[in-house]
Design a protein around this nucleic acid. Structure first.
Lengths: 191, 191
DNA sequence: ACTTACATGTAACGAGTTACATGATTGC
DNA sequence: GCAATCATGTAACTCGTTACATGTAAGT
């Protein structure tokens, strides 16, 4: 059985409450912003496999044609097993840093644009995370999740915030360094 | 032509100096630690394509059977084009944060172990980055790379350091939060 | 009526890893 | 002589995205 990662994510979302495939993906996209993603092309085949294995069951939803999925007891056991497996290390591929590493080919101005882009993305991420924070608090307030669940979710938001603030600080530091490089290059070419 | 990413990386390494496929991969693995990776299964097919397109040329290496590749002028032009394309955003998949987000299923102790693991990886990364810093300085000292090249490379090292220090700070903060959660859980169950 | 969001699914493609197969050179 | 490192390459497999096809329901 392939891709225990997607299946883990699906089972995990269903551990909070029953949901349609569409809603599972929405939860993943909205709440785990910046550290998880699933496409429909992954979600639906995964759901079929989980149903076949008896880990989730389908009830008909309010909307015709929509299928609300719930975790079975076996499904919860399996989820626990999957959660206990060590996280698979993501293969790192940072296009910005690759370009910066070979910055001399493009020169300092192009690199500054690159870093400025990274800085902007970090700021956008902070704004998004602030929105997630509000959404989690709201869901706790109206009883959608309990205090402990909110606590865990906010810990992941905090991880994103730490990371984004670090990216911001690095970008500012690096932008300053690139300005110095630009001046040095100017001095060399005018000499 | 597929995977401009791998080709970009190969061309970029060759912009520093000619190298064998094996050495290209070693450079990527050693110097771009933590933010890039290539496997032989990617590198060699990419090299074949680049040769066919006339972007790199092969000279026989010192060792029989080894092939030293150099960038052609067309290759350098193409590298510039590729460097100018915006970096493709990496699909985010953080297994640790996914597990933590649904931490209630496993409980605070298991989550603490998870976060402790992340903390350890951040510390390992800092040690590796310190080693890269030393290696870059050494290569600058013996003329393998010039001052500007060293400068760009150290900027990427700094990015890793900022990120790792952020991970460390987050892990400590979160570990403290999980301790409080554990105590709360104890209080609830003993009640 | 029309647009937007909800909802499900598949097929083709692209990208990447792992495992395997093979062999040369260097240092001990 | 033997182990480690250097070196090249391929095939099978997994994973994941994108684009497409299809239809319902709710709001304006």
């Amino acid at each position: 059985m392939p891709s225990s990662q997607t299946e883990l994510a699906v089972l995990a979302v269903l551990s909070i409450r029953p949901a349609t495939g569409y809603a599972i993906r929405a939860t993943l996209a909205e709440r785990l912003t910046g550290f998880w993603s699933e496409s429909f092309g992954q979600i639906y085949p995964a759901i079929s496999r989980l149903q076949a294995a008896g880990l989730v069951v389908a009830d008909d939803g309010a909307r015709s044609g929509s299928v609300v999925l719930s975790l079975t007891d076996t499904g919860r056991d399996h989820l626990l097993d999957l959660l206990r497996t060590p996280p698979v290390p993501a293969r790192p591929r940072n296009g910005t840093l690759l370009r910066l590493f070979f910055g001399q080919v493009q020169g300092p101005e192009a690199c500054a644009a690159l870093v400025a882009g990274a800085r902007q993305r970090a700021e956008d991420q902070l704004a998004e995370l602030a929105a997630v924070r509000v959404a989690v608090e709201a869901e706790r307030a109206d009883g959608g999740i309990d205090d402990d669940q909110a606590c865990y979710q906010l810990m992941t938001v905090s991880a994103g915030e730490h990371s984004a603030r670090a990216a911001l600080a690095w970008a500012d530091e690096t932008l300053a360094g690139l300005t110095r490089l630009t001046e040095r290059t100017r001095a060399r070419t005018s000499r």
